[in-house]
C-alpha cells in the first residue's frame, strides 16, 4: 500500500508540473495587461515603469522560472488589479465553490443512486421509465438554461427561494459556510441543484446500468436462495457492488464540478472561484487566472488520489493486487 501511495504521489506531482507549464504558456499568449492597467493618457515612462514593476520585460522562460520558483514558496504572483497575492484572492473564494460543489455532489448521490437502483430493479415499470426519461433531460438541456429556468420558477414565479447571492454565513473553523443558516441554505439550494442536475442524471444512468447487470449475477440469486430479506439483498449485496463504479465516476466528476461551477456561479451570482475567474479574464488579471488554474489542477489531482485510495477500500480485489504489486 505504501509503495503504491508513493508511486501515485509521484504521478500526481508530474501531472501538476506539466499543467503548470501549459497554464503559464497558455495564459501568456493572451493580450497585454498593461494596456488595461495604465490609464490611456499615461506617458511612455509610466508604462515602462509598470512593465518593470510587473516583471513583463523579462524573457518568457525567465518569467516561467521565476514563476515556478515562487510557486514552491506558495507565491503565485500578485494580482494586477487588487495588488494583493493572487493565491489569497482565489483561496478566499474557494470555500464558497467547494461548499457549492460538495452540496451538489451530495444531492446527486442522495437522489441519483436510489432512483438509479429503482429504475434498475424495475426497468419496465412506469416509474423506472419516467426516471430514465427525466435523466435524458437532465444531461441534454444546457446547464445555464436549467439555471435560468430554476430561477424563473422558484425565485420569480413561486418566490420561494432567492435568485442569487450567498446569504447569511457562519464561520466554522474560520471558514464562512452557508449551509448552517436557514437563509444561507435557501440561497444554496438553487445553485446546488443546478450544478447537481447533470451529475444526478449521470449517476442515475450509471447506477441503473450496474444494478441491472449485478441483479442478474449468480451471487444475487444465491443470496436470495439463502432466504435473506429482499431489502438486505438490495442494500448490501447489490449496492456494495454498484458503488465501485459510482465512486470512481463521482471522484472524477467532483473535480469537473469545481471547474464547471463557473457557469452556475455566474448565473446565480454565487461569489465563488468561477465568478472570480470570469471577472479576471475580462480584466486580463494573469496572476489570478494562473492561480485559479493551478489550484483547480491541484484539487483535481488531489481528488483522483483520494478516489484511488477509496476504491481500494471498497473493492477487496484491488487491495490484494496492489499488495502483490
Amino acid at each position: 500500500m505504501l509503495v503504491y501511495l508513493i508511486r501515485r504521489l509521484g504521478q500526481s506531482l508530474l501531472a501538476v508540473t506539466a499543467m503548470a507549464f501549459l497554464v503559464f504558456l497558455g495564459v501568456y499568449a493572451i493580450g497585454n495587461p498593461v494596456d488595461i492597467l495604465v490609464s490611456p493618457d499615461a506617458t511612455q515612462a509610466e508604462i515602462q515603469a509598470t512593465v518593470q514593476r510587473l516583471g513583463l520585460d523579462k524573457p518568457l522562460w525567465d518569467q516561467f522560472l521565476v514563476f515556478v520558483g515562487n510557486v514552491f514558496h506558495g507565491d503565485l504572483g500578485t494580482s494586477f488589479v487588487y495588488g494583493r497575492p493572487a493565491l489569497d484572492i482565489v483561496l478566499e473564494r474557494l470555500p464558497a465553490t467547494m461548499e457549492l460543489a460538495l452540496v451538489a455532489l451530495f444531492i446527486s448521490v442522495a437522489v441519483g443512486v436510489p432512483l438509479g437502483v429503482y429504475a434498475g430493479l424495475k426497468p419496465d415499470s412506469i416509474g423506472g421509465r419516467s426516471v430514465m426519461a427525466g435523466s435524458i433531460l437532465g444531461f441534454s438541456l444546457p446547464n445555464f438554461w436549467q439555471g435560468m429556468i430554476l430561477i424563473l420558477f422558484f425565485a420569480v414565479f413561486l418566490g420561494w427561494l432567492p435568485a442569487g447571492g450567498r446569504g447569511e454565513t457562519v464561520n466554522v473553523l474560520g471558514i464562512p459556510v452557508s449551509f448552517l443558516t436557514l437563509d444561507g441554505l435557501k440561497h444554496l439550494l438553487l445553485p446546488a441543484l443546478n450544478l447537481a442536475l447533470f451529475k444526478m442524471s449521470l449517476v442515475i444512468r450509471l447506477t441503473r446500468a450496474n444494478t441491472r447487470e449485478v441483479a442478474l449475477q449468480d451471487y444475487v440469486k444465491f443470496a436470495r436462495a439463502k432466504g435473506i430479506s429482499h431489502r438486505r439483498v438490495v442494500f448490501v449485496h447489490i449496492l456494495k457492488n454498484i458503488m465501485i463504479p459510482v465512486v470512481t465516476i463521482l471522484g472524477l466528476e467532483l473535480g469537473s464540478m469545481v471547474a464547471f461551477a463557473i457557469v452556475t456561479e455566474t448565473v446565480f451570482a454565487w461569489p465563488g472561484m468561477g465568478k472570480l475567474l470570469i471577472d479576471s479574464i475580462n480584466l486580463l488579471d494573469r496572476p489570478v487566472i494562473v492561480a485559479y488554474l493551478m489550484l483547480t489542477v491541484f484539487i483535481i489531482v488531489g481528488i483522483n488520489l483520494v478516489v484511488d485510495i477509496l476504491y481500494s477500500a471498497l473493492d477487496p480485489r484491488v487491495r490484494l493486487s496492489e499488495v502483490k504489486g
Partner: peptide, 13 residues
C-alpha cells in the same frame, strides 16, 4: 447449491 462456485459468492463481502 449453484453450478459455478466462482459466481455464487458475492465478491465484495
Amino acid at each position: 447449491i449453484f453450478q459455478d462456485p466462482m459466481m455464487t459468492l458475492n465478491p465484495v463481502l
